[in-house]
Amino acid sequence: MRSALHPTGLALVVPCRDCAAFIGPCLDSVLAQDWPHWRLLVADDASTDGTQRAVRPYLDDPRITWRSLPARGGLMANTREALARLAPAPAEVVAVLDGDDTLLPGALARLMEEHARGFDVVWTDMEIEGLAGSTGRALLPGVPVRQQLWCLSQLRSFKGYLLRGLPPACLCDPTGQPCRAAGDLALYFALIERAGAAKAAFVPERLYRYRRHAANNCRALRAEQLANNRHLRALAPLPMQTEFFDFTETLHDPDGNALDKLGLREFGQAVRARHPEPFSVRVAHVIPRAREDSWRAYHGLWIAPGVYLDGVFEDEAGSGEP
């Protein structure tokens, strides 16, 4: 049985600002990938150089489209508008590739491989121009993501459902404006929290090349980046989302007694055993409305890692509507 969140496609966002010298190699690196099934939006942030002219020849490929903001919005405003424009489907994978960087061979195929295994936020290791080291690491188990060293690389991807219901405030700086700097922290802290750390995967292969230059946000907006970093790490964590799951099991319980409340942990572990991690499972527990009070304290809870007990009422005809 295939997961309801098995990848249905791949959408690439390429945010850029004055990238005329870099955007060609960036797009060439995508075209050279051995995973050809993608669509790509070049999201231009009101460039003042020849970026649009450099992109124009690539628009002959129907997979590639162009959009330019009428006025500069900054990194997160530009990215957020591009994501809204793409409107990814829940199981569509979204990857962000900065317009001044390049993918290395096999990058897209490895991302899609991990997403097909059930992970919903995936990043790879990377090469940093002029440096031997990299930020890419796996998350520390059991430590809230906002309290960890930044361990994501520049090649990051996620499934589209994670954008549904994402609070706009979590992507903003202390003034309430979309982050111009540290926008990557703002977005991926939130996405990992909503997916759950068990649904996040690091690919320990260097599949991205990060270009260092004077216009990088970490240099050009250094003070703002540090201030936003502190602000974003101090925000309350977002709860795990409970709308989209890999699998749903339905349990019809007309008397409200089919489940042992004291054995819910063991029941959850049995469900978990039927679906390998990291797949998520929703148990739709269908009960009569008359039994609502007796189950109110138990529905809407995680009863095993990645297993969620959801309460569903029978309709008037007596059939469950999970």
Rank of each mutant, 00 (worst) to 15 (best):
L5A: 02
Q241I: 10
R85E: 05
W295H: 13
A138V: 09
Y308K: 03
H115L: 05
R110T: 12
T248Q: 05
L140A: 14
D60G: 15
A132F: 12
P15S: 08
A284L: 01
L5S: 08
L97V: 15
R156K: 15
D100M: 01
G311V: 01
P178V: 09
Y161V: 13
R67P: 00
P141F: 08
P7Y: 06
V96L: 07
V14L: 03
R137D: 14
Q225G: 04
R272T: 05
P105L: 03
V307E: 13
R211I: 10
Q177G: 01
P167H: 05
R272A: 11
R272F: 02
G24L: 01
E277L: 07
A46N: 13
D120R: 09
D60M: 07
R180F: 02
A197M: 12
L221G: 05
L5K: 00
R67I: 04
N216M: 01
A290V: 11
H285C: 00
V203W: 11
V203G: 09
D293M: 12
L166M: 05
N216T: 15
R296V: 10
R156M: 14
A236D: 12
F245L: 00
A214F: 13
T51V: 05
V122G: 00
P278M: 03
E92Q: 10
L191S: 04
L12F: 11
I192Y: 03
E114V: 06
Q225M: 15
E249K: 08
F119C: 04
R219V: 10
H37G: 07
A82C: 14
A200R: 01
L12K: 07
R63Y: 13
Y161C: 13
H231R: 02
F119P: 07
D61R: 11
R180Q: 12
A227M: 09
F245Y: 11
N228R: 02
G176H: 05
R117V: 06
E114R: 13
H285P: 03
A71W: 09
H6L: 06
L262G: 14
Y58P: 03
A82S: 12
G196Q: 06
G99S: 02
V307P: 10
A43W: 10
R156G: 09
S280N: 04
V281T: 05
L75R: 08
G99A: 00
Q177E: 10
N217K: 04
A169M: 10
Q177S: 08
G142R: 07
A21C: 05
Q154A: 14
P204N: 07
V94W: 07
W66N: 03
